[in-house]
Design a binder for these strands. Sequence first.
DNA 1: AATCTTTAGGTAATCGATTAACCAAACAAA
DNA 2: TTTGTTTGGTTAATCGATTACCTAAAGATT
Lengths: 353, 353
Amino acid sequence: MPPNQRRKQKHTTTNRVSLAMVAAHANVSTATASRIINGITNKASEQTIIQVKKAVEELGYRPASIGRALRCQESRMVGVLAASLANPTMSAIASSIEWALRDEGYIMSLCDTHEEADIQDEYLREMQSQLARAVVIIGAVQSELLNDYRHNGTTLLFVNRPAPDQKNSHYVGINNYQAGVDVANTLLQNGKRHIGIIHASLEFTAAAERRRGLLDRLSEEGIHPNDVPHAHSEGLNHLEVGYKSMETFLEMPNRPDVIVCLSDMLAYGAYRLTQEMGLDPVEDFTFFGFDDNPLNPWVAGWLNSVGVPASAYGPATVATLKAIWNQSPPTEPVYLPHQFRLNKAFFLLSLKK
Amino acid sequence: MPPNQRRKQKHTTTNRVSLAMVAAHANVSTATASRIINGITNKASEQTIIQVKKAVEELGYRPASIGRALRCQESRMVGVLAASLANPTMSAIASSIEWALRDEGYIMSLCDTHEEADIQDEYLREMQSQLARAVVIIGAVQSELLNDYRHNGTTLLFVNRPAPDQKNSHYVGINNYQAGVDVANTLLQNGKRHIGIIHASLEFTAAAERRRGLLDRLSEEGIHPNDVPHAHSEGLNHLEVGYKSMETFLEMPNRPDVIVCLSDMLAYGAYRLTQEMGLDPVEDFTFFGFDDNPLNPWVAGWLNSVGVPASAYGPATVATLKAIWNQSPPTEPVYLPHQFRLNKAFFLLSLKK
DNA sequence: AATCTTTAGGTAATCGATTAACCAAACAAA
DNA sequence: TTTGTTTGGTTAATCGATTACCTAAAGATT
């Protein structure tokens, strides 16, 4: 290793500008400098204020948030834990939340828990340890720490997927049960009664609620849950589950012509198989999904889906966080209005009715 | 406001456990506790070590990374700035990097710059101010601060899209020029010579290089750049640009039958229009994209694409970061081997040759 | 003139963890 | 016995910013 590189390594020439340097440059104490920088001007003369501001400018000073966070025991950072960034719905929600947070002067720190409880716990701890102002979980999984954190002062907000036990927690997102009911209504109104369900794990409240709403409504119309075939498999990602599940349906003697997938990703998987088998996803089936993936209008025109526009999440999430901080937390889940996106064939069909 | 809520607000019962509390609980000094917790055992007796570990366990202590970061002037956090999380390619890369970083004990903090220079600058500053160990930029845009940061000690790594000026910077990702050449080769080998290009801004090195490689190779085979029609529009997202651009091509008297889109998102946009016009994206055209979006095999079987598997990014990125930290930075861009994904029709065609 | 008030700003403690420097006791070597 | 040396710790400084509390000087009031 050349010696000039060694030198650099020995002491990273920390060219960070600290408050002390600004204060020295302006010939005032750090207290004065700090006050002026934070806009507390009633303790300084016009002259001093100008000096300090000049020093800040000249040195290119920016407060180290880490120092402030340590002292104030609170940072401007909001941790966002997403279950799977590979799922465009979740990344789009995260992106929307980022916009809204930055608008209010907060910084988003996004992490990917890969749907694993211990990774989620690790990040929960890390956020705590970084003194995050709040933790937003897009797609929570049941984990050991989750319940502890619910009560230890950290602001915790569940987005898109309710808390595993739904108790003492704040939620922003779709009304999963109602969405299930609405899908059932749409199908029934258009004379679709031969329905199959594809689902992954039902441990997640979101999926379970969607299914419950759907089946409840179908029951009311005389379609017994036992007459609604289910296909699923666990341990794979939703795309693969959808694919495998569709295989199951295609092998059935009297296969359903409506395939309700409890998430769009499942529908994507099912679609792949229909393509490979030379079937038509619009003529031969009616596919329904949940979440309305933002890519749907572009690459999945065949899919019907119900969901909340991703851009609605950011404002609602931030508004809810602020309400919690203001000691006026919502007492009810914050349900965002969901919308249907229907494919052309189904749309025309529904017009005729 | 009820009084019990007021009380809570007055002083957030900071139930964080600090090192001092652990030390007190174990009847040792913070120095001793700190050393034991960090595994420096040559300064402590067996007895003391057990005491401290018991205290840590009983109190559920976890070091506040903020304190450590302040003291050591360095955190375990790596900032990842993505240009657009709504783009599944970028989120998938981020997700992969997250895995690899966590494997090495680092924490990813992901931000969305929305392709905007000043947001990128804001996050660059914030990362600096949080003492991030490194900053990884997935899709950098030219910005004021970018050049400063290249030289002020912060480890900076460009992923998937080279630095705007390509000088003095580290890059991990696809060899854009070569990928362009390879696409040209594949087309030529299969007798495809009537080619159109859809692109968004060519200010980004990635897009410009792809185009250059493509046109250079076509030139060699006697297809002059002027004979390769281009369609583009600025200011919209890639999906919309693709859609608009495809309109342009469809209106042309002698429209190309091969549409090379400089990103998959552009291809998605173009695809939407072909669907709406009742055209067949496989029979009527040959679509080529770049990046091989991970969703392609599931919902875009019609697309041919060249790209690097998202999962390859994480390991390569982390390895490069470690090399930089070890004072043995790569002197060349780190090119990850790219692969082709061909649609069925094109694959069969290429077999025949 | 004596006292009070305001202005302008400094001193030092604090947040949590790390670590250089120091120290007392035990033990070993000369 | 005196002089190292090792063991097992402690004390206190430090990182960067904030802020409660103090103070000196100037101006206002009685």
